[in-house]
Simulated scan of single mutants.
Amino acid sequence: MTVTHLPFGVVQVAFGCLVGTMAGLLHFTTLHWCVRLLSVGAPGKAVAVHGARLGVLVLTFFVLAKLGPWALLCGAHGLLLARDVVLRRVRVAR
């Protein structure tokens, strides 16, 4: 079965989940880096990383919204899934 035979909604769901999860992994991993940078006394770098990570997230969800409601909804689900993954990884590391 090729992608051309799939309904567009299925493609939106798969693409939204994939992109949302990847964006979430990037977003929450860099949040952890921001906290580390702030704790070692590098607020300039932390603000720059924070701005970049929020910009990437906004751009990602803007593109998903342009693709359609299912892509946006599944992207949000992927973001929350990635949050769980990163939180579990950080908790195990402690």
Score class of each variant (00 low, 15 high):
residue 4 T to C: 07
residue 5 H to D: 11
residue 5 H to S: 10
residue 6 L to T: 00
residue 6 L to Q: 04
residue 7 P to W: 03
residue 7 P to C: 04
residue 7 P to K: 02
residue 7 P to Q: 04
residue 7 P to I: 00
residue 8 F to K: 03
residue 9 G to W: 07
residue 9 G to Y: 12
residue 10 V to W: 03
residue 10 V to G: 00
residue 10 V to I: 10
residue 10 V to L: 13
residue 10 V to C: 05
residue 11 V to C: 11
residue 11 V to R: 09
residue 12 Q to N: 07
residue 13 V to M: 12
residue 13 V to I: 15
residue 14 A to N: 07
residue 14 A to F: 11
residue 14 A to V: 14
residue 14 A to W: 04
residue 15 F to K: 00
residue 15 F to E: 04
residue 15 F to D: 10
residue 16 G to A: 02
residue 16 G to H: 03
residue 17 C to A: 14
residue 17 C to V: 05
residue 17 C to N: 04
residue 17 C to Q: 08
residue 18 L to H: 02
residue 20 G to N: 01
residue 20 G to I: 00
residue 20 G to V: 02
residue 21 T to K: 03
residue 21 T to F: 15
residue 21 T to I: 10
residue 22 M to L: 15
residue 22 M to H: 03
residue 22 M to A: 15
residue 23 A to T: 05
residue 23 A to K: 04
residue 25 L to T: 00
residue 25 L to G: 05
residue 25 L to C: 02
residue 26 L to V: 06
residue 26 L to K: 03
residue 27 H to I: 03
residue 27 H to T: 00
residue 28 F to W: 10
residue 30 T to K: 00
residue 30 T to F: 15
residue 31 L to K: 00
residue 32 H to S: 11
residue 32 H to W: 14
residue 32 H to L: 12
residue 33 W to P: 01
residue 33 W to N: 06
residue 33 W to G: 07
residue 34 C to Q: 10
residue 35 V to P: 09
residue 35 V to N: 04
residue 35 V to M: 13
residue 36 R to N: 11
residue 36 R to I: 08
residue 36 R to D: 12
residue 36 R to F: 14
residue 37 L to R: 11
residue 39 S to E: 15
residue 41 G to L: 09
residue 41 G to M: 12
residue 41 G to Y: 13
residue 42 A to W: 13
residue 42 A to V: 05
residue 44 G to W: 14
residue 44 G to E: 13
residue 45 K to A: 15
residue 46 A to S: 04
